[in-house]
Design a protein around this nucleic acid. Structure first.
Lengths: 185, 185
DNA sequence: GTCTATACAGTGATAGAC
DNA sequence: GTCTATCACTGTATAGAC
């Protein structure tokens, strides 16, 4: 079981690079260094089970490293939101790395993993909104600002990859960060 | 030649739904109602040429309906920016429709169509920045605001599809619209 | 558990009848 | 120009030797 988990990061990178439809089993074998037999031994459900394992892994990482710190934000302390921007900037490598949930959302893969993808973004928004409320924003304002900020991160990834310019990612993130740290109206 | 162009919108819709790697020639035949022979007669280069034709078609549409109106914005007239938001909201069907250039940017297709994708977003940003300058923004401020706004549109598409909620698209767009129409600091 | 061998459906693409 | 038939190949998935 822990053997299986050890190969999940390599699968994640392969899916990020090639997409779900574009990643063949041969690709995934090369990425993990395993033969087809071994891969199917760990993931009898094939590609779909591999992608599900990857999404679960990403979910766990974001929950521990992004969502829970946001939830833990104490009243009047705005540092948690800034820490989130630092974490996603590092994680997405300034836009060089793709958000798999976001990429899947744009394609047919969305139907396969609808609940997982929906839950990921919903919890991201909800935890960010909680941190914003702790920082003094009202209920509805916090939710809307959180939606906008998560969209900004996703858009920053798309745009910086399209222009092949990590600087664009940083620009968008910094604007979003400044906006959420700005004094309340 | 006009025969060929007539089938491009159907190909566009197929690529939007299935992605580039996910759209098989059989899929594209079904979408256009043509046999393989006919498709290859129009597009000897296969899928790649079909996608290139689709991107060129989208490029022409955006140039005529979005980029040029932005360029035509006269000094002191902020209506052009608002018209852009209306146009993209209609075009992307409140996030139900995907931006093909954005979706391609996230995957390996980016390498195949790098110049086209880069040019599309670069001209979107540049024309929006021109309209913002016409509305009174400074050079650098206009560029940064344009980058942020285009990213917001892309992020809105990703997020609204992920949550299967067109309302999210509208929320993000309205925030972006309000921000760009706000009085200058 | 790991690999090799294999099954067989589906792929992109071409040739040729009409 | 359009289709059908067919090509060689790659796809996912399984079976079985080790």
């Amino acid at each position: 079981m822990t053997q299986r988990a050890a190969h999940v990061p390599a699968l994640a990178e392969a899916f990020r690079e090639h997409g779900f439809a574009g990643a063949s089993v041969a690709t995934l074998c090369a990425a993990t260094g395993l033969g087809k037999g071994s891969l199917y031994n760990f993931f009898p459900g094939g590609k779909e089970e591999m992608a599900a394992a990857v999404l679960a892994d990403l979910d766990a990482w974001f929950t521990a490293c992004v969502f829970e710190p946001l939830r833990a934000a104490r009243a009047g302390d705005p540092a948690a939101v800034g820490a989130m921007f630092d974490a996603v900037t590092a994680y997405f490598r300034s836009g060089r790395r793709v958000c798999l949930q976001g990429a899947f959302a744009l394609g047919r893969e969305r139907d396969l993993f609808a609940a997982t993808i929906d839950g990921y973004f919903e919890r991201w928004i909800a935890s960010l909104a909680a941190a914003l409320r702790a920082a003094g924003h009202g209920e509805q304002a916090a939710r809307l600002a959180a939606v906008e900020a998560v969209a900004a991160v996703q858009g920053a990834i798309v745009l910086s990859r399209a222009l092949a310019d990590p600087e664009v990612f940083l620009q968008v993130i910094e604007r979003s960060r400044a906006r959420l740290s700005a004094p309340l109206a």
